[in-house]
Each structure stands twice: as C-alpha cells, then as structure tokens.
Design a protein around this nucleic acid. Sequence first.
DNA 1: TCGGCTTAGGTGACATGTCACGTAACTTCC
DNA 2: GGAAGTTACGTGACATGTCACCTAAGCCGA
Lengths: 180, 180
Amino acid sequence: MSPKPKSRRVLPEPPLTEEQQETWLAYMRVKLRLNYEMNRQLQTDSGLSLADYDVLNALADCPGGRMQVGVLAARIAWERSRLSHHLQRMTARGLVERSPSEQDGRATDAVLTAAGRAELDAATPGHAALVARMFFAGLDPALLPALRTALEQVHEQVLAEGTLPRPVSQHRLPGLYPGS
Amino acid sequence: MSPKPKSRRVLPEPPLTEEQQETWLAYMRVKLRLNYEMNRQLQTDSGLSLADYDVLNALADCPGGRMQVGVLAARIAWERSRLSHHLQRMTARGLVERSPSEQDGRATDAVLTAAGRAELDAATPGHAALVARMFFAGLDPALLPALRTALEQVHEQVLAEGTLPRPVSQHRLPGLYPGS
DNA sequence: TCGGCTTAGGTGACATGTCACGTAACTTCC
DNA sequence: GGAAGTTACGTGACATGTCACCTAAGCCGA
C-alpha cells in the first residue's frame, strides 16, 4: 500500500511541540469547565441557557437589536438551521421576534423584544460576576495584555483558516447610530 | 421601585475593566469558532463528534484505557447522566465497553475497546493538524509561554471556584504504570 | 442488623442540535 | 423576460443533552 515512494513524505512528525500541547490541553480544560459553570449559573439564576445568552447578547450589541438571521448565525458561529430552531423557541418565549428584512425579500431579521432585553439585562450582572470570579480573579494581571493579544491572534487565525464566513461587522460604530 | 434605600448598595459598577472585557470577548469568539471548526473537521474526516473525541481521549490517557464513569465525567466536565447516555451510544457503536468496577460494587468502569482506540488513533493526526493550523499558526511564539501560564492560572481558578468536583488524578504518572 | 443517609449509575420525558432537503427570492446572461 | 444557478431560511427526522427521579450498594450509628 506504499507504492507511492516519496512523492510527498508522510510526515508522521508531531505537529505540535511539547509546550503547544500543554497549552492546548490547558485551553481545552478551561473551555470544558467554564462552559459547564456558565451554563449552570445562567440557568439557575436567570432561566437562560448559554445559547440563549449568546443570541440575546449578539442582538443587543447591534443597533435596534435587529440582525439578519444569517449574519447572526455567522457572528455566533452556529449552523443556520440551529439558529432557526432556536429562534423559533425564543420567539415562543417572547424573547425575540422575526420580521421580514427590508433589504432582501428572502431574508428575515431577528429582533430583540423589550422582554428579551429585560431578561438579558437581568442576567448580565450575574454572568459578568461569574466571569470575573472564574476567569480573571486567579489571573496574574501582568499576563492580561499578553493573553488578550494571543487570543486576538488566534481569533484572527480561525477567521482566516476557518470554513465559516467572516462575520459581517454590522456592528455599532462609535458615534454612529443609524437609528431604528 | 427603589424604596430599599441603601441597605446594601446595588453596585452597578462594572466588575470587569475595559481590557478584561476585550479579553473575554476574544476568548468567547475563539471558543465559538474553534468549537465549530473542530466539530466539523472531526465529523467529516473521522465520523466522530467532538464529544466522542473527548471521551475517547480521556480514556486513552488512562492506564488500561479504563476509568470509573463518575471520574471520567468530572474529568471532562460533563453531567453524569449525559455521559451515561453517551456511553450507551458509544457502546452500541463498539467504541467502549462497560464493566463493573472491582473496587466499588456501585460503580461502573468505562473501558476503551480496541476499535475505539483505533478510531481515536485514526482521528488524532487530523485533529492535531487542525489545532496547529487554527490555533498556533497565527500565534506569535513569543506569546506562547504567557498564554500557557495564563490558561493554567484560569484553569486552577475554575477548579477552585467551580461547583464541579476536582478531577481525580487517576492519571498516568511518569514511570509508574500499574498495568492493566 | 436494622434503618436512615449518602453516593454510584441508569432511565424516561422532554429540550436542544444536526443533517438533508425543500421553497422562495435574488442574479445573470441570453 | 425567463431558465439556470445561487442564496436565504425553514422543516422534519433523528442524534444528543438535561432534568427529575429511580434503584442498588456502601456507610454508620443505635
């Protein structure tokens, strides 16, 4: 099964150095535990899941609390069908609404309702407190800038290499609020 | 709605500094996208989900590929019932087996099968390559040590503050293999 | 050795996520 | 202006995760 002599070496060499492996393991461990804790805290304190929070948060971060469904999906790195189902459930709970897009007849906008914003606002302090306590409280402040830069570099890399479309920066621009 | 004068100040102060917020946002963005990409890559290239991979990986990292179910759950930060269901499915696929624990009559061990180990081995290079490409390729090597230390500090903090039991270090100790 | 307490895991009903596919609105090019 | 290709979302079937609760084994003091 190896009649292809050396057209391109198989490269069984480990693609990660020792230190990279350790870093990756630490990342995964943090991710797993933090996910668990965030979910739990949000659920018990606010009746929101982390998924709900991601959606509400992304919407709230947008002028008018309104975003096209596909754009929102790209922003939070969800499958579009997942978002579609989830919006259905959140609509039933009164947290968001759907309304046909003005720009594109095919598209739908997800819109934050007043109730949705209220729930988000109610949930945010507890969530932020958890982040402060779980993530930053044990972190040497001297490492913060490096951590930030590193994460931003990784983010950029994932965007560049990833299969998912780069999120549209339908973002709030400082001092530029197009209004409703 | 503010008839409770100042029994305890409401503390609307933001618990996070500007730089902490940015760091947190970067972390969340990385987490969302990387999760998406890892899932996708594993699924299409190996027919394993990221969840499968987490389980197999944890087991393989243990002498004999055998671990008590609850210990495994703590290790990968899953609800125990989730793991129970998942093991059932993985058992049906022949990736793992269950066998009653020798030490504790109540407990069950999850055991990696030969097929499970083979699948894991087959999936690992692709997964590692993805990590190398998405996570490390864009990272300034000078930042690596700081990133690692920061993540390890955060991990320690989550363990200390979290609600989940600290994972038992039923880990492979260098030079100390109790054997099967 | 009996009864209550705790801890192990499992289970069934239901919430959530994924995949494959469907329909409709654009876009293009003739 | 209309067929072909693309893009936007929705949907139904099924895979996965969560919650509340169950049974059994170990534990412990009366």
